[in-house]
Design a protein around this nucleic acid. Structure first.
Lengths: 214, 214, 214, 214
DNA sequence: AATGAATGAGGCTTCATTCAT
DNA sequence: TATGAATGAAGCCTCATTCAT
């Protein structure tokens, strides 16, 4: 089964950790509140209340409030994001597309949906990435290993078929990623909606031109 | 004279407002601290101390802590960003470039420098934009009026000369902007350095291809 | 004017510090509570309540609870104890006693009264001295400089007159001090009363024998 | 076999009580932690951890934290101190000394060693004695029965032989005890070392003079 | 206009104690 | 009997905000 949002993926990942039901409730509640109000504006009593436990319980396993964040970010980097990335790249590499254009369109659409579905959760990550260099680096590696790597085979294939310009793969992926963000971010920030069909076609059109072989 | 960073521009803009020296000191100190630690982690006593005034003074003009932020964001939207944008578009529209390629390269380079110089301050904006929809909308209009508008003439010119694809101007600018961000953001987050010369040439190469007329 | 208890001396000493009335109230309340219940069993809200101020005020000047203790111990070592010691030695050195025996009896009696009057406050010091080596050392120097020093002249005088054994002064004072404590401490701990007249005579009798020249 | 420190004596005493291994572990751990950090600064989870049991187990036998203290103080008063006292007085009364001077020197030296070896544990007692009047009284009786009583025979003997002044025994013992403390306490508090040989000779010299028959 | 002492609500955290397993 | 998750009261401390001077 393939997921297209992060909160669900996260809740599932918690089952692999040694946590009681209440502890999981704390993490789920924290993820929700941190997403909505940000880390600093979420109080530990907010968390306890939403999780339906006492404040003491919040601290039983996650020694500090920061510890809760770490307990969220950890699985995120070690499990949620990898799983999401793997699901994505698996799907991509196991499907055959008639042309680079259709391949491109497919992944752009897929990632737009994913990003929009996961926007609130991605905000936590964004905040952490802004604040915490170690986490930023972690994500950078994640990106390298889980996206650039697996997509490599497919992209190389299109390069050999002369459907894709002969640039380094990370450069190509950079352009794809930022172009997708260029559509998703403004919509997310302005709380507007995106016509994904239209946006993905536009983005594909631009990228196809820009990434055409010389 | 043209500025290439925001803190300086901000300090100058304050001179145009009816503020005592102490009030200006408060705003400058606040901008600095908010940039470094974020709004929530900056205390009003931190601000008073850095500004060299009493806490009472901080509250004399800016009724609340939120009020300080507003007093910063206000000038930002009404003066600093417009001035930055105008300086940019003026320079662009008053200079003649041999070709669209050279024009593109020039503005990409210029904006990369600007963004990298102003990164800490842009973080406040980024954080506010994430949290506060009204501010996000304000920025959106700013962008529309100050960038898309003034640049319009020049871009249209290149479209008429068949050096630039015949797409709506905001779409074109979106791609330019996101591509620049694609180079600047990772460097900023990973605290790495950017080879601006190289990055701007790469970005230009990609955009030229992607924005070539059909 | 000569004081024979510590709480009064302490309250007077506070006037020499730059503290508001409320801050002084905090310190006086703290001294009282720490004396009665001990540091660990006194809560900051207890202190605030007894001092008649808000808890915030408690922390305005004394950054931490430990800071309150320091703010008490500091004046104690720097002002209260020196003043007490000086008042004592002054009185002793400016009075002439017919014999060493009467001199001894006078100071023993005086110190018994002082110790019994100041017992609750001395408990804080005792606790600190047990826990904190630096403070223990501070007291040791205090003792050396303020007691052994000033008393030196007088004792030497009695040594020359062959009324006092020819031992080092600190050894002699050690015996006097511990003998006094031997009467005061049990009474203080058992909350019993002391017949000072009787106790001081007994102690004098013993010390006179023990300190008689060979 | 004769002991010269309290922690060992305590551990042995526990064997005479009907306690499971875990209960004993709890008491030993508590004694150690209370000695090191004091009662108030020792948490029950600290104790559980050091004892290698769960927090639940700690509460199974000792209903409250205070109960642990009682369970320590009890054996202390009922067994440890009596045993220590008895071992001491037995040794003293079963050995014959050529003179009161040698007798005095022997017991002074012995008690100095004992006090220095047991200093950390004595601190708990000291703290409790300061705080808790009942315990203080208990100790007072202990002292009376276990020291003054047994030593009585020996001291009377020396009084009859005119080697010892004809004062009440508790008065004599008071002076011996406080003089010993006068050497031991400063060293313990300043974490200095004591030259026991020298100190005991000095103390003996003084006491011999002070306790000489008229 | 400027000061800074004072406030009190609320945040994070600890810890003695209980109870279902 | 032993466990350890769970509790909730209470502790220490911060901070935006007010107000008398």
């Amino acid at each position: 089964m393939v997921h297209n949002d992060i909160q669900t993926l996260f809740a599932e990942s918690l089952n692999e950790l040694k946590l009681t039901e209440k502890q999981k409730a704390v993490l789920n509640a924290s993820l929700k509140l941190f997403s909505e109000k940000g880390f600093d504006r979420t109080s530990t009593s907010d968390i306890a209340q939403l999780a339906g436990v006492s404040e003491g319980t919040v601290y039983k396993q996650f020694k500090t409030k920061e510890g809760i964040l770490t307990a969220i970010i950890g699985p995120f980097i070690q499990q949620v994001m990898p799983k999401a990335a793997t699901e994505f790249t698996n799907e991509v590499t196991h499907t055959s597309y008639p042309s680079f254009g259709e391949f491109l369109h497919a992944i752009i659409k897929d990632r737009m949906v994913f990003a929009l579905n996961s926007m609130p959760q991605l905000r936590i990550i964004l905040h952490e990435v802004i604040t915490n260099q170690a986490i930023a680096t972690g994500f950078s590696h994640l990106f390298e290993n889980l996206i650039v790597g697996p997509l490599g085979q497919t992209l190389k294939h299109y390069q050999e078929e002369k459907q894709l310009v002969d640039w380094p793969l990370d450069r190509i992926i950079r352009y794809v990623a930022t172009t997708v963000m260029g559509y998703v971010l403004p919509a997310a920030l302005l709380h507007g909606s995106v016509d994904i069909e239209h946006a993905s076609r536009e983005a594909t059109e631009f990228l196809l031109k820009g990434l055409k072989p010389a």
